[in-house]
Design a protein around this nucleic acid. Sequence first.
DNA 1: TATATATTGAAACATTCGTTTCAAAAAATA
DNA 2: TATTTTTTGAAACGAATGTTTCAATATATA
Lengths: 193, 193
Amino acid sequence: MPRIEEFDRELVLQNAMNVFWEKGYNGTSMQDLVMATGLNRSSIYNSFGSKLKLYQDTLVHYQKETGGMFQKALVKAKNPLEAIRLIFEGFLPEIISDQKSKGCFSMNCKAEMGNQDQDIRQWLLNSQNQTLELFQNLIKDGQEQGIINKNQDYENHAYQVFNSFQGFRMTGILVKDRKILKAIIDQTINTLT
Amino acid sequence: MPRIEEFDRELVLQNAMNVFWEKGYNGTSMQDLVMATGLNRSSIYNSFGSKLKLYQDTLVHYQKETGGMFQKALVKAKNPLEAIRLIFEGFLPEIISDQKSKGCFSMNCKAEMGNQDQDIRQWLLNSQNQTLELFQNLIKDGQEQGIINKNQDYENHAYQVFNSFQGFRMTGILVKDRKILKAIIDQTINTLT
DNA sequence: TATATATTGAAACATTCGTTTCAAAAAATA
DNA sequence: TATTTTTTGAAACGAATGTTTCAATATATA
């Protein structure tokens, strides 16, 4: 009996995400979202509840996207060390071609909303733990294979890589020079070998 | 002849900065600023021009503050390597005691406003260059003194330290464990020795 | 085809936004 | 003390904010 939703939910989330990404949560108006998604105001509220809920949905959408990039790197890599390198390098095209200087959606979210909304804060913590665990597992494997040094235990190594990765995303906002970015990746990998 | 300004300009900037820092530019309303500074609306406009100009003034105020912290580290340090360590460690108290999870004002600004206002973008670039030059000079000195390795030229080393520093400020938003933060600093210093 | 259900479009909601206005108040100079 | 200059307080500005409303529209089932 029900009339079915006409729009492509993932496409709407993609478009909404891009606006939030560029302007931030508070910098984005409902009117911006109406124009970017092509949906009517009432359709947005009917399907997503509120501006904040829609924002949270775009965060999950983003997580899926980046999760896919991580998986690609894991599949392509021949060993754990190369996997970490490929994860970093996977963001190079996005960083360099980012004409609008949107930066990283996740970092932007953390800076703007990490201390404003409890649900978002929890999402950020979960996302952080997921990334840390991924690095931890890779480094543990690498250490067992003798590819990665044991100067530090795998937890500390993982935090260091995580730290460097976050710096990488922030640096990439104003630094677009591939050579410099590559050097930063090299140095991060170097601390593991 | 003129009636003199009654308020302490630096104190007003300090209070305004704290609001912007916690809520972001777009998350802060003029009413927030009136309450935080104790000034009347018209006084704010009369003395600072607009919300955006006031924000820009708080950025400069912040730069003075952090510049002071950097100088303290330089004075206290016995060598360039220790200087870099002290710079990082100088932010530890702020990070750990940051109950509101405000993070780093400069990182927040970069994430939210770096692509929204040309003047702010330019300020961020200047600020970045200043920090990079500081690190470059320290590392060049350290290399000449034989304290810092020559695995990389001083420019690349500086970018790596800068990158790690930005990661440090972002990581510190959700990670408050002193041991972990110390380990991140240690690893950053390690790449230089 | 008739019915039930959900989505859609346009308008309106109260509230808040950043900013302006202007008369009253205050202080330094003459 | 009189004058000049600036700040201050309170109110008001139009525009924009996020959200709600509700009749009209569209569709899958019976």
